[in-house]
Amino acid sequence: MIKARTDWTGLFFAAALTVVIVFPLLIVGTWAFTNVWRYPSVIPQEFGLKYWAATTARADVWTSITMSLSLASVVTLLSAVICLPAAFAFARLEFPGRNILFFSFLAGQAFPKFGLLVAIAGIFLNLNLIGTFWGVILIQLVGTLLFMIWIPVAAFQSVDRRMEEAARDVGASPLRVFWSITMPQAGPTIAAAVLLNFVGTFYETEGAWLIGAPGIRTLPVLMISFINNQPVIQYGAVLSVLLWLPSFIALLFARRIIGSGSFARGFGG
């Protein structure tokens, strides 16, 4: 028997991650299912679903959930429609300005986002887009461009051209090759990008708040206002547990559709 050596570095990182990520989650999770928890008790005096009933009874919670879901869905769909063909073009075609255009998508992420948003809000104010559904769609769409283009570009580029040629050779038209060979090969990575995009948009707060207020209230925006304005911690805690749901579902999905390695491949790994 070979005795496994203790991986101290690994243990250190695991412990650090636990403290930084799991511990706060645990506290928030506990608060969500607490009826009474008074200082200095270490564990709550009374567990219960009292605040779940109270939170889910509120109309603004439900409208914001619907709002968040429809925003994330529309943004993801639009982003896919715009970005995937663009990604294919970036991956396969040579056109003037290709490289500069490709790297210009970084610009959206390279500058402090809030300053940019304030400036855009000024423009949107003139265009009567402030506080509207499509205003928020637009601003969130910009935020998705980078990953929805860069990841699929890597996916399309990693498809073996010989595979596509072999398909042409046995009689497939270029369009048929795309559907039967290129898409299935690049599919898992692109699915990962779409999923990331959906979750990212669902949690996006600054744009939704700056452009959307006061007409549009997403779940994260509502949570912020709960945390800021409510003396009762539980409302915020229940909402944040609700907010974990989409990322949890997304993770489950991701495990099912993303085979070994293809997720990493999307990032050039």
């Binding site: 073996d160 010989r162 595979m163 040629e165 072999a166 398909a167 042409r168 050779d169 046995v170 009689g171 497939a172 038209s173 060979i181 299935p184 090969q185």
Partner: peptide, 19 residues
């Protein structure tokens, strides 16, 4: 174009469709 030629090609990298 290749899809309308009566030729069959075997590639060095075999190029099998892995999916």
């Amino acid at each position: 174009p290749p899809e309308r030629r009566p030729t069959g090609m075997v590639f060095q990298s075999h190029a099998l469709w892995t999916h």
